[in-house]
Design a protein around this nucleic acid. Structure first.
Length: 788
RNA sequence: GCGCCAGUGGCGGAAUGGUAGACGCGCUGGUCUUAGGAACCAGUGGGCAACCGUGGGGGUUCGAGUCCCUCCUGGCGCACCA
């Protein structure tokens, strides 16, 4: 049955050269695509370029060129490298995100999102990467450092554009369950990132003021144990009580805590009324309260929260037990029976939570609340080489999002990248315009879009890259989702979450029937290689290392080389091999074989000289095999070949490509052992068709030589009857331990087998003076004899 | 700290609860030769053996690498998320 199959590998950033990681990624996808084509499926298998981004700007400054020139040259070069890999790609679908023909439609999408209320601008404290000189989204900050530069991010207050991904938090979370063909790991990561929690919002009345302070908690059951309130330094109440100078000082103090997680707080000399009890509890500013989660304020229950406990100890605040536990167990955070809580005494945690939320709702002091960790996606980037945001600003500070008729807003080519800051900001010619609508002087938005916006919808544009609108609804409904999406796991949250959001947002705007962009996600492992160093701690490329009398030496200088552990191939450690050189030396088919042979595709693959060489040997061996013609085909041979077809197919479909290589070895081992050399037999055509997705060049060459064909048309149809194995080796166990095996046929009679088994010496020796208690016969599988 | 995943020969790795180690690399011995980045043949978990073997210890089962509990080790992710 033929169907559409959209097979996609994550498109590359055009850095200049492909690396082995790309090769592995694209070979995996190529094998799938070729297989599905043979199956008669309508295969979509495009390739393009994630072409906007900072490296182009950095390179432009370094090499005195222009980001566009640099990028286009790189694309040209990388494209020719990819073409040398002979991948079966739809090059007519090619696109580059820096192409006006791509990003102009992205500007349309921005306008659509804006009109749908999903894009907005606000002042926000944002992550500033001091090296890249731009803002980063929350997802792009890892351990407090920029995801690309590794520089500690700074906090800045800037007016920024955001996409309202939080509107879709619930759906993004729930739909993870529908993604059966995604790795659990990625789904867990996204789930954690979205960070849903169910709790309560409680309103505390501030004493002496006609004001309420809202807090968020997942433990409203511990309300009777509340002995203080803590707010983040950015909380509004702080600015009402303290002057700017004091706040700055607190901020500084918080930033310079001695050890991580050390608790620090300042009493605001302000108190709240406990919502149930007739008592006052103090309000603190505390360093451990996050300002961008919940309400930026919490109530502290030291007896049942580790952080509150630490804080209370430090500042001598009362600790009131409200859940039954021993004193030495404090802080006790587990479940238990409520005590010291008149309304809740005797209940367990879940019961108490329900009860108290109901009470708060009735008294108007609080309510149930669902909270998410995920924040809206900050998309403004203070960089030149990106998609311009279609917005203009007027001198009075107001702004207007452009109409689609005013698009495209083209990036100016003529810019100076030498100065600090955004080149667009410095380009007055481009920036300053007369607004065609109002005739007023206006200034273009000089921030550009996060490049993750570019990659959030490229898989849709691939469906028709020439269309005079972003995409065609019918085509989207017909060809999406992507059936198999293959790429690195480093995008587990960033790109994959953004794309899911985009798909859903666009679905709602354009009435698509597609909820998720990628039906199956396959994350391939990285390629590693041993590392080499001189005694001066300089990294050395593998190709420069020679082995002489068991010692490793640097080829040119003769220096002694020390071999280090295998690590991810990286330029900085120089443990890389160049695809061009490998292709030159071993050819594309051997390279493909090696990319899939030594470990499962989702695990890391260690590059070894032996590995690539034995892959080459296999290619030679196959070629040699088909140059002979002898031996007689019988039913058993046919069965072996049928099994081969079946296994290869199964293993391609499950991405167990390493097992496909094992299948190939198994088949040729068998045929050569039996001295059966098929040449232009119809069975050999069958074998070649199965080899084609894996080693297309050799297969095509052979099918041409042997059959005078220039193509493969079909995947062999499997004859199920030939898969049935009637001769079997039946294992015989005593007490569950293997004693021997018996050659027999499927459907044997248990009694007959047992009669002959009991005659065997091995069995008889075990059965001396013992009785057979029971015989377990799993028909055609195993016989287990139980003795007393 | 929390969560997830994984521990199988010298190495990479196979095994719907049913013969552990398929297949490959490496290694050992041999063959051939216009001496090769070959090719071919035989062998290769441990132990002389009975037997023992899938990180350790328990358990379920006729039967456990596989399922359950527990501990150890490694990797990844999250990390003051109230």
């Amino acid at each position: 049955m033929s169907s559409k199959k959209y097979i996609l590998e994550m498109f590359p950033y055009p850095s200049g050269n492909i690396h082995m990681g790309h090769v592995r990624n694209y070979v995996i996808g190529d094998i799938c695509a070729r297989y599905h084509k043979l199956k008669g499926d309508q295969v979509i298998h495009p390739m393009g370029w994630d072409a906007f981004g900072l490296p182009a700007e950095n390179a432009a400054i370094q090499f005195k060129t222009h980001p566009q020139d640099w990028t286009l040259t790189n694309i040209e070069n990388m494209k020719s490298q990819l073409q040398r890999l002979n991948l079966d790609l739809d090059w007519d679908r090619e696109l580059a995100t820096c192409d006006e023909n791509y990003y102009r439609f992205q500007q349309e999408l921005f306008i659509d999102l804006y009109n749908a209320g999903l894009a907005y601008k606000k002042d926000a404290i944002v992550n500033w990467d001091p090296i890249d000189q731009t803002v980063l989204a929350n997802e792009q900050v890892i351990d407090g450092k920029g995801w690309r530069t590794g520089a500690p991010v700074e906090k800045k207050n800037l007016s920024q554009w955001f996409f309202k991904i939080t509107d879709y938090a619930e759906e993004l979370l729930n739909d993870l369950d529908k993604l059966e063909l995604w790795p659990e790991k990625v789904k867990t990561m996204q789930k954690n990132w979205i960070g849903k929690s169910i709790g309560a919002e409680i309103k505390f009345k501030i004493s002496g003021k006609d004001k309420l302070l809202n807090i968020y908690t997942t433990r409203p059951d511990t309300i009777y144990g509340a002995t203080f309130i803590a707010v983040s330094v950015n909380h509004q109440i702080v600015s009402e009580v303290l002057d700017k100078g004091s706040i700055e000082k607190i901020r500084k103090d918080f930033e310079t805590v001695n050890e991580e997680k050390e608790k620090l707080g300042v009493n605001l000399n302000l108190s709240c009324k406990h919502p149930i009890l007739d008592k006052e509890i103090p309000i603190y500013v505390a360093n451990f309260v996050l300002d961008n989660y919940g309400e930026g304020a919490i109530f502290g229950c030291p007896a049942h929260d580790e952080r509150d406990y630490e804080f209370a100890k430090k500042y001598s605040l009362p600790i009131i037990k409200v859940i039954e536990c021993k004193d030495e167990e404090l802080p006790y955070v587990g479940d238990g029976r409520l005590i010291n809580s008149p309304l809740l005494d005797g209940l367990n945690k879940a019961e108490a939570i329900n009860e108290i939320i109901e009470y708060f709702s009735k008294s108007g002091t609080g309510n149930k609340k669902i909270n998410y960790k995920i924040r809206d996606w900050g998309i403004s980037r203070q960089r030149y080489w990106g998609c311009p945001i279609p917005v203009v600003y007027y001198e009075d500070g107001s702004y207007r999002v452009l109409d689609k008729s005013e698009l495209p807003v083209l990036l100016p080519y003529d810019v100076s990248l030498e100065g600090k800051g955004n080149a667009l900001l410095n380009n007055e010619n481009w920036r300053k315009i007369k607004c065609p609508k109002t005739n007023k002087t206006a200034f273009r938005e000089t921030d550009t879009l996060d490049t993750f916006v570019d990659s959030s919808w490229y898989y849709i544009r691939f469906l028709n890259n020439k269309l005079d609108k972003p995409f065609d609804r019918e085509q989207v409904n017909k060809f999406l989702p992507v059936d198999k999406y293959i790429g690195g796991i480093e995008h587990a949250i960033l790109h994959l979450l953004y794309s899911r959001f985009f798909m859903k947002a666009l679905r709602d705007i354009y009435d698509f029937s597609v909820d998720e962009p990628f039906k199956q996600l396959f994350t391939q492992g990285m390629i590693t290689h041993k590392t080499y160093k001189t005694s001066k701690n300089e990294w050395v490329m593998p190709i420069e290392v020679v082995s002489v009398d068991g010692k490793l030496l640097k080829r040119k200088t003769g220096e002694i080389i020390e071999e280090g552990p295998s690590e991810k191939m990286s330029k900085s450690k120089k443990n890389v091999v160049e695809p061009d050189e490998i292709l030159e030396n071993y050819g594309i088919d051997a390279t493909r074989i090696f990319m899939i042979s030594d470990s499962p595709p989702d695990r890391e693959l260690e590059w070894t000289d032996e590995g690539i060489q034995s892959s080459k040997n296999l290619i030679n061996r196959i070629q040699r095999y088909f140059s002979e013609n002898k031996g007689e085909v019988n039913l058993e041979v046919e069965k072996q070949i049928e099994k081969f077809v079946y296994n290869v197919e199964k293993n391609i479909l499950s991405f167990s490509l390493n097992k496909c290589v094992a299948d190939i070895y198994t088949l040729f081992n068998y045929l050569e052992k039996k001295d059966i050399y098929l040449n232009n037999n119809k069975l050999s055509k069958k074998i070649l068709a199965c080899l084609y997705p894996i080693v297309p060049k050799l297969s095509l060459q052979l099918v041409e030589e042997l059959f005078n064909l220039n193509n493969f048309n079909d995947w062999p149809e499997i004859n199920k009857n030939l898969l049935i194995e009637d001769k079997i080796k039946l294992p015989i166990q005593i007490q569950g331990k293997l004693i021997t095996t018996i050659d027999t046929e499927k459907g044997y009679s248990e009694q007959e087998i047992l009669n002959s088994v009991y005659q065997l010496d091995k069995i008889r020796n075990k059965m001396l003076d013992k009785k057979v208690v029971k015989v377990i016969n799993v028909q055609d599988k195993i016989i287990n004899i139980i003795l007393n």
